[in-house]
Design a protein around this nucleic acid. Structure first.
Lengths: 112, 112
DNA sequence: TAATACGCTACGAATTAAATAGCAAGAGGT
DNA sequence: ACCTCTTGCTATTTAATTCGTAGCGTATTA
């Protein structure tokens, strides 16, 4: 398996620029969703799967491995959770929650 | 083609929550990279393709349509560019640039 | 002992992306 | 008119990813 890591070429990025490695990592199905859900606290594999609307275990497992290798999540006593870096990243993407609601409203009423 | 739009079920999201629709949209290959590159200003299809490390035209074209339908990018005189909403979104993800460099450094030296 | 929850793995099918070639339209020059 | 170039994009084939489902092995609880 090929993991997205800064400093080396990754899928879709021949330069290995950190931001492109990050985009490659996050630009996979459910990667952002997993971080988002884990921000609520540690949870088991199956709880996480359920929160991610029943994503298939194979995809979930793959994402977990990628995110773990990238130092964003880890597995503790209470299940999977964000690492310190993962919490930092979540703090950055957190505003997307509020913004997405604005976005949704404006897509419904483009003349706002 | 099935576009990611808030308010209705999308790929991987049966609930239609705005944040999940957004994650679905951004969680596709090159979606984030395209927004990132367009923040530098309007550019032609081929210029954008070149900046995205030679992404295939079919993928680029698909992403352009999705992002256009979602109101994040548009096509003006000088080529493709971010809409007002696109600029807003970029402002939110912009901090990822600096953070990703920290992240890269800490992955190389985990004992920092 | 049975039942349950757990973290996964296997595998075929479906979807998505990549790679490459090339077309039609427009601009510009000769 | 003709050639050349750029542009936006489509077509086609092939590769990679994701999905959906079934189920295994272990641990815990009843």
């Amino acid at each position: 398996m090929r993991y997205a890591r800064p400093g080396q070429p990754v899928r879709g990025s021949k330069t290995g620029k950190p931001i492109m490695a990050l985009f490659d990592l996050l630009g996979r199905n459910w990667a952002l969703g997993i971080i988002w859900q884990l921000s609520a606290g540690a949870m088991t594999f199956r709880a996480l799967q359920e929160r991610c609307e029943g994503v298939s275990p194979s995809v979930l497992n793959t994402r977990i491995k990628e995110l773990t290798a990238s130092g964003l999540i880890t597995r503790g006593e209470a299940g999977y959770c964000l690492t310190e870096m993962g919490e930092e990243l979540f703090a950055l993407i957190r505003p997307l929650g509020a913004w997405s609601m604005d976005w949704a409203a404006r897509l419904d009423a483009p003349d706002a």
